[in-house]
Amino acid sequence: MLAQQLLNGILAGSVYALFALGFTLMFGVLGVINLTYGFYFSTGAFVALHATRYLHMQIWEALPFAAAIAGLIAIVIDELLLGPLRRAKAPELSSLMVTLGATLLLYSLMTAWFTTDIRRFPPTVFDGGAFEIQGLRITLSQILIVAAVVSIVGGLAWLLRRTKLGLAIRALAENDDVAQLMGVNVGGVVHLVSFISGALGGAAGVMIGLNYNAIQPYMGESMMLKGFAVIILGGLGDIRGAVLAGLALGILETLTAGYVASSMKDAVGFLLLVLTLWFRPVGLFGRIAAKRA
């Protein structure tokens, strides 16, 4: 029982980690809290749903496809909304307000189009079924999710730590003026970071849609609240913190649902958020956040 709970918790937590990673990357590199981020999560889920249903893609094809579409939309939204503010060196509050307004508009458009009915993946997506290993039940889609999260997080870590592009991204995060002085094309790197963030959010949307098999436009909205809890717990802009805090939230939620009450599950994130802000406002490892403050 406990082992099954932990397994489910790690599964949910790894998706939270993936989602928070994109959010924290956006903040850490571009320096803005972009509230449209949850929308990419919903976008990813809907694109994957339609890709499997109408384009007859397999889920492992639909996942990167949906992530890429979400990433491209993220570039467009960032350029349209935040590009002008960045160039004018506008205060942070303006970007917060602009993305808040845009979020309301984007969700309304999505609802007008798709309604708020809950949609489900076609049953063929789950053909693989499930395994039982020593009483632990794990489905193929769950294996796909964990494998995808591990490879995406590993890939991102490799990009940021081991490549020249990653070096440029980190340079931009620290000091965009000096990054330019060294020859970094900041506009291009900003687009790339928007793409990666949007794709991470979109991929997380596909996975949550798959795991609970329930998709509706506002799913990104409730995920954003968890995303906030995770990046505040992990420290704003902290990659490692986002992964660990995401896993922690997933496990705590599942254990709460299993041993306390399932109605309390969603409160865990907020409890963690409040406790973090009270006792350790820079987050578990908040280094960048502490420096920026």
């Binding site: 070096l167 440029a168 020859g183 970094v184």
Partner: peptide, 30 residues
């Protein structure tokens, strides 16, 4: 910068969260 005009800015402005090796690598970015 690509044309070969490179600045060491006021107040040093090294990339504090990077290692010394990474800072030097950034200098040779192009």
């Amino acid at each position: 910068a690509r044309l070969g005009v490179v600045q060491s800015p006021e107040g040093r402005q090294v990339f504090a969260n990077m290692t010394i090796a990474e800072n030097l690598a950034m200098g040779a970015y192009l």
